[in-house]
Amino acid sequence: MRALHEALCEAMVGGDMAELASILTDEFTLTHMTGYVQSQSEWLDAMETGQMQYHRMETVEATISAEGTTPLLTARTLTDATIWGSRATWRLMLRSWFEPHGNGWVITRTVASTW
């Protein structure tokens, strides 16, 4: 799970849409700290068009737990990003849920909040 989280962060910063598509389910949603829920396709489109640019992500702490039988990774990050025209470094807590896919795992949803 930690390796998948790191791959997510690297792909976000690198703008690697193919990598993101490969590690996220088609039904993936990202819930922003504002509460806005964004589909995978809308989020990737926002990155492709430059509405959301991730400049740097540092994972400060990451823990793995379970919610029922579903693995959950909670990561505290320092995220330098430009989101809809506003650039800042946010202290984001990213909670990501996973499901099995082939011989590995994919991310089904991520919820962002501040810490």
Rank of each mutant, 00 (worst) to 15 (best):
M1D: 08
R2F: 11
R2Q: 10
A3H: 10
L4M: 06
H5T: 12
E6F: 09
E6Q: 14
L8Y: 14
C9K: 09
E10I: 10
A11N: 02
A11F: 04
A11M: 05
V13E: 08
V13F: 07
V13K: 07
V13G: 06
D16P: 06
D16L: 07
D16E: 13
A18K: 14
A18D: 15
E19N: 13
I23L: 15
T25L: 12
D26A: 15
E27G: 13
E27D: 15
F28G: 03
F28H: 09
T29N: 09
T31N: 07
T31I: 11
T31Q: 15
H32A: 14
H32C: 08
M33Y: 12
G35V: 05
Y36H: 09
Y36V: 10
V37P: 00
S39W: 00
Q40N: 14
E42G: 04
L44T: 00
L44W: 02
E48R: 11
T49E: 11
T49H: 10
G50R: 05
M52L: 14
M52E: 09
M52G: 00
Y54R: 00
H55I: 05
R56N: 09
R56M: 05
E58N: 14
T59K: 07
T59W: 01
V60K: 07
V60Y: 03
E61T: 12
I64K: 11
S65Y: 02
S65Q: 10
T69W: 04
T70F: 06
L72F: 06
L73K: 01
A75W: 08
R76N: 14
L78M: 11
L78P: 02
D80S: 13
T82R: 09
T82G: 03
W84K: 09
S86T: 14
A88N: 12
A88K: 12
L92P: 01
R95F: 00
S96L: 08
W97H: 12
W97V: 03
F98K: 03
E99C: 12
E99Y: 03
P100S: 01
H101D: 15
R109M: 06
R109V: 01
R109I: 00
T110D: 02
A112I: 00
